[in-house]
Each structure stands twice: as C-alpha cells, then as structure tokens.
Amino acid sequence: MTLLLDPFATAFMLRALAAGVLVAVMCAIVGTWVVARGMAFLGEAMAHGVLPGVAVASLIGAPTLVGAAVSAALMSVGVSVVQRRWRLSADTSIGLLFVASLALGVVIISGSRTFATDATAILFGDILAVRPEQLAALAIAAVLTAVAALMWHRAFVALAVDSRQAQVLGLRPRLAHAVLVGLVALAVISAYQAVGSLLVVGMLLGPAVAAGRWTHRIPTTMALGAAIGAVSVWVGLLISWYAGSAAGATVALTAVVSAAVSTGVRAVVDAVRSRGRGPARPGPAGPAATTTTPAPVSA
C-alpha cells in the first residue's frame, strides 16, 4: 500500500490529485451529454479553440483563464454565425473554426521567442503545478457545472431525444443547446490547466464512454464516469511518479485507456453470461436459433 499512497504525501501531488478529481467530476457530467448528443467534435474544437485566447493573455500578462473564456465564447458564437450565415452544416462550421483557431494560436505562439515553456503548459497541462487558488476555482466551476446540469436536466434529455419534442414541451431547445455548449466551454477552460488543451478531450470522453458500457441512465452514467475519472487521475499520477512521464498526458491517456478496458471487460462479461444461459431449447415447431440482447435502459 505504501507504493500506492506514499507519492501523495507531498503537497503538490495531493493538490494534483484534488485538481484531477474535480476535473473528473466536471468532465463526467459534461462528457455524458457530449457522448449522448454526439458532440465530441465540438468538444475537441472548443479545447483547441481556447489556444489563441490563452496565448494572447500570456503575452500581455493577463489571466489565462480570462483569455480562454473569451476565446471559447468567440468560438461558440462563431460556430453559430458561420452555420447560419454561410448555410453550412454544424460539422463543417466547427471544422473551419477549429482549424482557424488552432492555426491562429500557433501563429501567435511562434511570433514570440520566449513562449516555448508556456506553450508546453497550455498544450499538455501542468497538473503538478496547480496552486491553491486554482484549486478553489476548479471547485467553484465543478459546483456551477453540477447545478446547471441539474437545472437543465429535463431540457437536455428532451433535446437528446428530439429537439422538436423539446420545442413542443416548451423547453426552449436553442437555449438548452447554448447552455450545454457553455458547459462544454466551462469544462474545457477549467480543465486545460490540469491536462492541457490538447488532452482535455480525453477526460471528457474516456470516463463517459467507459461508464456508458455499464449503464444507460444519465445520472448513474455521470456518477460512474466521475468515479472512473477519479481512479484514472490517481492511476495516471502514480504512473507519472514512478515512470517519470508527463503527468497531464499520463492522466489523459489513462482516462482514454479506461474506455478500452471497460469495453473489453463488458465484452467478457456478456460472453460469460451468454455461455451460462446455454443453447436455446427447440420449440414445438422444431429447433430455432434465437439471439438474446439486453433491453436498453431508459435515460
């Protein structure tokens, strides 16, 4: 047990673990909806979209969180404007702005000769350098995310099923979609300090996908995803400590691996259950091949 607990006796590792758990909770709440609504591309674009704002903020000495927030807001508004004015699909609009934001961020970074260290932290995170005030900001963001998800739960469910039905029920699907995009932006902005803008999508998707293999109810998927994400943070930090690897990247990789492990374990469990049931008995009219599939659980 000492090998598993000793690394967290240091203050910076304990802060990293706390920050990672808060990120895991936030990303599990938002990531569940991202997976349910097929918004992974938007999440990735939002993660890369904060790069220009963070780069500009770093160059002028402003808080990077402010720069990230401004950049994410511009990305959200830009996707809506391009989609409506240019009459393009959502994927095309997101793709155009995604590439433009990433390229602009790289241009800004390359224009400064003293930006290499900061660029590494922006892209890959620096979870081991989380300060107490950043930890407090993460806690506030996690609470805001949980409250907003609870308040808009009914609208999000209706929006995931059928936006027209949500409109008929008076749940304002456009506003609900805007709130959901805002939650994605909040999760990305808050988490990039820990795992970086390039790796935050792993935390958004990995635990949510892993949890989705075992439950299809939204609240339980969020809870299980948060638990899987927290364990991924703990395991990733341990691997980073003993292997000397980059902490943020190792945590994000562990979160993605959790999805693959969960999928594999689920396949084994299903195979064992199928063998336990045995071959189907022939009916009165002769042998019949039957296939048993689990009934979906409602969200």
Results as ranks from 00 to 15, higher is better:
residue 54 V to N: 03
residue 53 G to Q: 05
residue 88 L to E: 08
residue 33 W to R: 01
residue 46 M to G: 06
residue 65 L to D: 10
residue 70 V to S: 04
residue 68 A to T: 00
residue 59 L to G: 04
residue 76 S to E: 10
residue 71 S to Y: 08
residue 42 L to Y: 07
residue 79 V to S: 03
residue 37 R to Q: 13
residue 41 F to W: 06
residue 57 A to K: 04
residue 91 D to A: 13
residue 66 V to G: 04
residue 53 G to R: 01
residue 74 L to R: 02
residue 44 E to M: 11
residue 70 V to M: 08
residue 90 A to Y: 13
residue 71 S to I: 09
residue 74 L to V: 12
residue 49 G to P: 06
residue 88 L to Y: 08
residue 68 A to I: 03
residue 77 V to N: 05
residue 74 L to I: 13
residue 66 V to T: 09
residue 41 F to V: 04
residue 33 W to Y: 13
residue 71 S to K: 09
residue 86 W to A: 15
residue 80 S to K: 10
residue 43 G to H: 00
residue 92 T to G: 13
residue 53 G to T: 03
residue 53 G to M: 08
residue 76 S to L: 15
residue 39 M to V: 03
residue 66 V to N: 02
residue 70 V to W: 01
residue 65 L to H: 03
residue 35 V to D: 07
residue 55 A to W: 00
residue 38 G to K: 11
residue 60 I to K: 09
residue 69 A to K: 02
residue 36 A to E: 01
residue 49 G to W: 01
residue 35 V to F: 05
residue 52 P to E: 00
residue 89 S to A: 13
residue 58 S to T: 12
residue 42 L to Q: 02
residue 45 A to I: 00
residue 33 W to E: 05
residue 92 T to S: 15
residue 60 I to L: 15
residue 79 V to G: 07
residue 62 A to V: 10
residue 47 A to V: 02
residue 85 R to F: 14
residue 78 G to K: 06
residue 90 A to W: 10
residue 85 R to Y: 12
residue 56 V to H: 06
residue 85 R to N: 07
residue 67 G to Y: 08
residue 92 T to I: 14
residue 54 V to L: 05
residue 88 L to N: 10
residue 39 M to A: 08
residue 91 D to T: 11
residue 92 T to R: 11
residue 76 S to T: 12
residue 87 R to P: 12
residue 71 S to V: 11
residue 33 W to G: 03
residue 51 L to G: 01
residue 41 F to M: 03
residue 45 A to C: 07
residue 45 A to Q: 02
residue 81 V to R: 11
residue 44 E to H: 14
residue 62 A to G: 02
residue 52 P to L: 00
residue 69 A to W: 06
residue 37 R to L: 12
residue 59 L to N: 02
residue 54 V to A: 12
residue 43 G to I: 02
residue 88 L to P: 09
residue 47 A to M: 05
residue 38 G to R: 07
residue 90 A to T: 12
residue 75 M to S: 07
